[in-house]
Nucleic acid binder design. Structure first.
Lengths: 190, 190, 190, 190
DNA sequence: TATGAATGAGCCTTCATTCAT
DNA sequence: GATGAATGAAGGCTCATTCAT
């Protein structure tokens, strides 16, 4: 009894995700260059060759991981999709951000790795901008609506601070004072 | 008749620095793994082998670069070395920080590369802490003296923000609104 | 459709032996250090990289060769496996020894190379002892049964002489008076 | 006050010997390839360059060591230089041999290393023969005078046994039953 | 005579990628 | 779709030897 095309496709998607997750774990733990295709294959319990059935190269693989990760992040940001952030949404967003980072620690480790390694950054620059530009637009709008005279600088500082916090949180997640930091951010940036 | 010991020593120090500078350029530009010893040799206009006359391994080389860089940074921080930061010193420090980053862009690229690549981070973790711990102690003291009730969280947030700003500045130095950001930081964090 | 596990295994065993034989030839002919992985690959008509698919390092490779060789030797010694050597078995053993050396000249060259190169000896010391200790036990038993008062010294002298003969035979096999030497040994050591 | 030419020459000879001794130690301990010129220089407390002032190459150096060692051995063998060995001289020779080996353990380690490494053997083959041929001539003469019908085989077996004993002694000098072995040799080979 | 910086060839090893099965 | 043997380029590193001083 042959499977339907649908079933095949679903299987492929599942396996593809499985490979990406295995790779993400290793990339985040060891770095891009220090992770070999062999290691990924072993971790995913498949053969080396099969990886090339799903991704054309190691670079395509990390590209796919980063793209996917940002796609997910994008969906969770700006809840009602109107491009406008109210104070309540802003607070909710801060909450969400820590939540997302905590749940996807691996991915954010990868993110910083990518950002600080030019050779890898090139691969994902475009996708990154696709996410960051709307983010800055919304944040700038938020400060504009508050009537600040330099909303762009505010937005950039806020973005930078978020990067910094993520970085620090990621380096030592267990000792980071999450709740108190949230409060302080809200106090200072709203 | 051989050179005097003095002559040899001077030669070594000079050449060592030359190698470190060449390596820093490439590490910052391409990343640690993507930079080969061959490339460093070519950039420094010396033979591959000579590098190993000055550094036992590629890892030792990056270690030396990071150590050196932090040593310099350490000297410029806390101007009067009393471990106490006044408001004026704080403002001066913000100024200095941007200055230092601007002048040593390469080094700070390297710094983020190091922090976000576990395999490299291990090599310099100790030295890094040697610099960061006093920094946090002083910052915590600063907020304590201001009578805030959670000086540690303030200090961490400030540190994180500084990381984030450096990172953003570093990625796109030409379009970063330096002066306005400085003002905003002072306004928000003093 | 991939090969069956069976097919892969057979392939591996065959290729592994092929590599070991190629390596043995060269090690025996040129010495361990003077034989490069490149040379072995060329002799085996495979790529350098493939050798590392079968052996983790050059050291592992020589280790495997020595282990294998001794394993074979061990099987041919002490024919009826009772741990006791009769006069007839002793004579047979002398015969066998020359035979084995003659047939595995390469391997015995390697053996002396190994024994006299500390850095290589370390690698195979354990395996060597695994073979030599039972050999000495049996030889000591042989002289004990003859009622000699210093069977251990007899056994050692016999072993030493065998080493020496092998060494001399190996250096110039064509001019070595095999048959007459056998007779003389039997005459002197029985 | 300039030194006389004589004094210069003596100094050169002394330094040359010093280098050779340092090198011998290391060659015997680590093997020829595993010993670098740098290590020899360090052990001799001189510069790398100076070694090349005394020896044209690493190969020349080991050659000189082996030549020198055999020269010394040759002098101590056949005490009265008449080319004839009496029973007493033979016994004395056995004694001497163990003595010499014990006193020059390093050198004899080197000897076996050399013999079993074709690449090195080539370098000293000629010199070796220069010593071995007279040795065999004398030993053959010894057995001829005793009226044996195969004096050459006797001589070769004796030589081989001496090699074997030296090898075994060298591998584990502390546990070798020197005195008893001497007795046994005399008993069996005279 | 003596030094050690400098070279460059060559070594061991790794790994992304291909391909026959 | 799936396997893993096989390749080949490149990387880090060592070391005999040379040479300016």
């Amino acid at each position: 009894m042959p499977r339907t095309e649908e079933q095949f496709k679903e299987l492929r998607v599942k396996k593809r995700n499985h490979i990406m997750n295995s790779a993400l774990d290793l990339f985040a733990q060891k770095g891009f260059d220090a992770t070999s295709i062999s290691m990924i294959a072993k971790r995913a319990s498949i053969s080396k060759g099969l990886i090339y059935n799903y991704f054309n190269s190691k670079e395509e693989l990390i590209k796919a991981i980063v793209h996917d990760g940002f796609e997910k992040f994008f969906v969770e940001f700006d809840p009602n999709k109107d491009g406008i952030l109210t104070d309540e949404e802003f607070i909710y967003f801060i909450d969400m951000t820590f939540d997302i980072i905590q749940k996807n620690l691996q991915f954010w480790k990868l993110y910083f790795m990518v950002v600080s390694q030019p050779q890898v950054m090139k691969l994902v620059e475009e996708k990154l901008m696709e996410v960051l530009i709307p983010f800055f637009r919304i944040m700038t709008g938020f400060y504009e609506n508050k009537g600040y005279d330099n909303p762009i600088v505010h937005a950039r500082l806020f973005g930078a601070m978020l990067d910094g916090i993520s970085l620090n949180f990621m380096i030592d997640p267990d000792n980071f004072p999450v709740e108190e930091t949230k409060k302080l951010i809200i106090e200072k940036f709203i």
